[in-house]
């Protein structure tokens, strides 16, 4: 399969690329930075991993940058993993609208535009593709300081549910993986005490495994998940 993965340069995105490559798929990765970790994967899987540096804050030109210059009409796109996201942490009384708009551009508007062109690509090739969005447990449980970030993930979840409903008749699936807190750059600003309090709210009392999240994404992309669409799959160590 040919899969587009956004935010491929580190963390969960990088792990998703690694799992898909190990399964024999071809991955088209986009991210802002071209990291050494990603280059390492490219060296390990020559000819099956491609990279394009894209600023996902620019929602208006993804047709050009992603679909005309990178995944051309010659490529049959089988899956789209919307993983790229930015965090904007603050309490609501400090909310700054420019920062909010910038985060929504990256976390919601660009993913919606990428979904538009991914579906169009699937229509052109008449293939039954699978779309997977990465959300966050914060959209469901609530955490101090994450109201803005969590609301962007809530928007994605609603978008995915409606994508599934709208395009299901053509065999196109859309699902969301909802990870719990992981040890990634996204949560690096949290103190150990904050992390401990978060992990105490999980059944397994630990950070969510990045590998488990990536494996779930790969499963949802695969034929094994052919009857799963419109779902939110929690991979969160049993957050309560």
């Amino acid at each position: 399969m040919n899969i587009l993965v956004t935010g491929c340069s580190r963390g969960v995105g990088l792990k998703i690329c690694e799992v898909l490559l190990a399964q024999g798929h071809t991955v088209y990765g986009v991210a802002r930075s071209y990291t050494d970790e990603f280059k390492g994967l490219e060296a390990a899987y020559p000819g099956r991993l491609f990279f394009k540096s894209i600023d996902l804050a620019s929602s208006g030109n993804v047709r050009e940058t992603v679909f005309k210059e990178f995944i051309t009409n010659k490529v049959q796109l089988d899956g789209f993993v919307n993983n790229a996201a930015m965090a904007y942490d603050d309490i609501i009384t400090n909310l700054n609208v420019e920062r909010l708009e910038e985060m929504f551009a990256v976390n919601v508007f660009t993913p919606m535009m990428l979904t538009k062109y991914a579906i169009r690509h699937m229509l052109l090739h008449k293939n039954k593709g699978s779309i997977v969005h990465i959300s966050s447990i914060s959209a469901h449980t609530g955490y101090k300081g994450l109201a803005m970030y969590a609301s962007s993930k809530g928007a994605l979840e609603a978008f995915s549910k409606n994508t599934a409903r709208e395009w299901g008749a053509l065999g196109i699936r859309s699902n969301v993986v909802v990870p719990g807190f992981m040890e990634t750059a996204m949560s690096a600003t949290l103190t150990d005490d904050q992390k401990d309090r978060i992990y105490k709210r999980t059944s397994l009392k630990a950070a969510t495994s990045v590998e488990s999240v990536a494996e779930t994404v790969a499963f949802l992309l695969s034929e094994k998940a052919v009857s799963i669409t419109g779902q939110n799959i929690n991979v969160d160590n049993g957050t309560i």
């Binding site: 047709r63 009409n73 579906i119 169009r120 690509h121 229509l123 052109l124 053509l170």
Partner: peptide, 18 residues
């Protein structure tokens, strides 16, 4: 509306106009 979506992508592939 789904046929029109298919029409649009095929016309776009041919003429590069959405």
């Amino acid at each position: 509306s789904f046929d029109l979506a298919e029409l649009t992508v095929n016309i776009e592939a041919e003429f590069d106009i959405d």
